[in-house]
Amino acid sequence: MKLKLKIWKQKNQTAEGKFHDYNVEADEHMSFLEMLDVLNEGLLENQQEPVAFDHDCREGICGTCSLVINGRPHGPMQGTTACQLHMRHFKDGDTITIEPWRANAFPIVKDLVTDRSAFDRIIQSGGFVSVNTGQAMDGNAIPIEKDVAGEAFEAATCIGCGACVAACPNGSAMLFTSAKINHLDLLPQGKVESSKRVVKMVEKMDEEGFGNCSNVGACHVECPKEIKLENIARMNRKYFAAKLSAK
């Protein structure tokens, strides 16, 4: 299949970027990233600069790939990362626009690569449980209700890709932050630091320059792991409770 690509090119964070047009010959069995590999190989053969884009696992679990494809983070398929998106969802002769994540808290490093370390700093601020060293406890010794475990697991499937921020018209990181808070907070091990965690992580999120959530819900639609909006409501609840009960 022959495709026309409109790709955002930008030298570095401060340089001005613009769209470049490329033509590429792809196969419908390729993944989206393989199609970009083919493009880059061709560019290298012709001594041109390849297009910079982020990727790592290429199996939908690391959250590194980050492309806005035709205006949609991770492309048109629901619950799918860009690396798991296949070219069979496009037609021969299509023009595809590829842009980087857009949010001021995610500055562009080069072309389609953005700096998402703000997420790491949110995690560092409270996205952990403290445990004493020593003999590991028997996991089954702590009873956890099945539904609660399921809810915690669902929240834990967030891969930290940042599509929620990219999708949000406000550039808000509330879906990510709430998923990370809840997957720990729902479990007994996470309850110990519950109040501290939610306050710290929300403070960090604000400090990192993410926007303010207005419940648009675009984050949930674009999230490759379909993290639920209920997470945000739960985080709000926990945050109010932590603030109101703080000494």
């Binding site: 409109k6 769209f19 806005v68 494809i69 035709n70 205006g71 949609r72 626009t97 590829i98 842009e99 857009r102 999708a167 949000c168 018209p169 648009v216 819900g217 675009a218 639609v221 674009e222």
Partner: peptide, 10 residues
């Protein structure tokens, strides 16, 4: 904002 399409949401 994005050139390739509109954001999801009502």
């Amino acid at each position: 904002g994005y050139k390739g399409g509109k954001a999801q949401g009502s």
